[in-house]
Design a protein around this nucleic acid. Structure first.
Lengths: 358, 358
DNA sequence: TTGTAAGCGTTATCAG
DNA sequence: CTGATAACGCTTACAA
């Protein structure tokens, strides 16, 4: 995979046009500085010679790469197949393109995020879902590259954008409460890397906090029995509900921390012979595009995923975080409950046991 | 978004260690060439100074970017939210990472793919779903960068990987035929860009060919009435079935050219009061992960999406296509039918009209 | 084993 | 308005 022949350089064009390299550069970048016909002459020759400026040389000289890095602790294979990241990336891409920036995914390389960060040549980075325990944050901060964090309230002193996870989660729990539910199962997101697992990831902790805050007034506590975790995927949701069921959990409602998991749970419920929402109510979190097309359509907590991506870019371009600079802007985006068809009034339990409201 | 302070360069390390820049370079890239303690001394100092080689300078000097470009005619926002591309990209990413390569998405920039290609700094490109009419193919070929095409049989003289679209489509049609269906609706993929629209994209034409080939022996022809097209998305599928229905189509089976569209069609069918598969059989194409989790699970044509991505990388690394080189390897991957729950024996029509086999 | 110096292809600076 | 000339930070012959 080597280049076959040498490509035309700025020097070739300069020589052919009988001008300096600088003049050629001007002809493309600041044509106002040259006389009109010099510009057109140079451009003509450049076209003839099929000259295209080398992006790498340009980056080196400009000391800018025109690229935004999207840093995630998950591998690219999970990133690309995860609808949440898809929508988020779409938001980032839209805003980045508008600003003339490309985006580069920075994911663990051979297991090392640090290595990946070193190899990436970017003007700034958007770090998604990074806990405070990630050393990469310090690594980037030291490097002096501007960055913003997304979904990491733990990093309060960095500029970043987050959604109201607690509030959204509370809305979901309250909704179920109002429908008369008393036996809950929480399906949580298990942090991706082993190192994260020690301390639950920010999102998980915050949403759990929201559920608890809403249920407490009703005298309901979520003990370990009422919580299962797994990867934030469809399979993860299936597995989670199966596992909970196998160990004897008999909820009338499940609070899933992601739509993917909620959809998986719906699938698993069907396998267990439960009708959703009649035997089991399920509420998700995210409001993916897909959520409105499931059967039944998914009741879920909406968060503005694409906008989150756009805001992150805006923040980054507006300054990001610089070395030793005072903390800058924090964005908190609102969440809201979208009631669709996967939740209903609590009725008799799945095995004919009438719920006595205990 | 400017760098706050100057980062440590190789010259800084060299001076601090009292060696030449070359020695520092060797210490990292070819330590065998230096004495063991020189290496460790240099490395220690480099660590102290927090030296990290500048990737851009390295690219320029090496004349390699260690990056593979993924070229698509669709915008990044559709790429990232399309599960097919997600799985494909995951395959590419896996293979690329194993080879120490990063991947860069090359999508129309401000509407121009050509511009995007110029700005991209890559060692090779994988072009997905490009028709022969795309001038970018020539652009890249002229540039001398190795490339492979995916899903474009029109470009027979380029190395590339394709799946057996005709065969797979025929399998799908034959399956429905065997179930007794006689009234079909084809939901096709509408090419993304207006320029492509003139001539149907390769995939669409090939799959349609497969359907026709299978139906012809049964004396069934697909006229314009029997075909609707739309974007390859869930919404596209919903829209397509609705439109066909509105204009009077009353099929007992639909052949969708993508799983996303098939799932959309299932949704639209439900809205129309049709039960799948009882009133309407639906078969998709792709076999996305999602296909097994729909309700009912989707009968579809499986294609090895991830593997397609991996093979493309392999081909590219194995040489790709060079300027003026003889055509190189073509890969044709097999497809197969996966029968699940969305297809059933043809029965009475949706409005109680008994199908007389006409 | 290590150093020297010539690139790599731009852009930026500063005279003319 | 134009053009030398010097960065930019690294790799890599080639010399020592």
């Amino acid at each position: 995979m080597e280049q076959a022949t040498r490509r035309t350089t700025i020097a070739d064009v300069a020589k052919a046009a009988g001008v300096s390299k600088a003049a050629v550069s001007f002809a493309f970048n600041t044509p106002e500085r040259l006389s009109a016909d010099t510009v057109s002459r140079i451009r003509d020759i450049a076209t003839t010679l099929d000259y295209r400026p080398d992006p790498v040389a340009r980056m080196l000289a400009q000391r800018r790469t025109w690229t935004i890095g999207l840093l995630t602790p998950q591998g690219l294979d999970v990133i690309f197949t995860n609808p949440y990241f898809g929508e988020f990336s779409a938001g980032v891409a839209t805003a980045a393109e508008a600003a003339g920036m490309a985006i580069q995914f920075i994911s663990p390389l051979h297991g090392s995020l640090t290595r990946a960060v070193d190899r990436a040549s970017v003007d700034g980075v958007i770090a998604v879902g990074l806990g405070a325990e990630h050393p990469e944050v310090g690594q980037i901060r030291r490097s002096g590259i501007p960055f913003v964090v997304v979904d990491s309230t733990a990093l309060r002193d960095e500029p970043g954008v987050t959604v109201d996870d607690e509030g959204g989660a509370a809305l979901a729990a309250r909704h179920l409460l109002e429908l008369g539910h008393r036996r809950f199962l929480v399906i949580g997101i298990e942090p991706p890397s082993a190192s994260d697992r020690a301390e639950p990831t920010g999102v998980t902790a915050r949403r759990l906090g929201g559920y608890r805050a809403a249920l407490a007034p009703a005298g309901i506590e979520l003990d370990d029995e009422a919580i299962v975790v797994g990867p934030a995927s469809l399979e993860g949701g299936i597995e989670a509900l199966r596992r909970a069921w196998a160990r004897g959990s008999r909820p009338t409602a499940v609070l899933a921390m992601s739509d993917a998991m909620a959809i998986g749970a719906m699938r698993a419920a069907r396998e267990l012979g439960l009708r959703v929402p009649r035997d089991l109510s399920i509420v998700g979190f995210d409001d993916l595009d897909l959520a409105q097309y499931t059967d039944p359509p998914l009741t879920t907590v909406h968060q503005p995923i694409r906008r989150k991506g756009q805001e992150a870019v805006r923040l980054l371009l507006a300054g990001g975080r610089h070395r030793d600079e005072e903390p800058s802007e924090q964005q908190l985006l609102a969440t809201r409950l979208v009631v669709r068809g996967s939740t209903a009034r609590a009725s008799s339990g799945p095995e004919g046991v009438v719920d006595d409201g205990r």
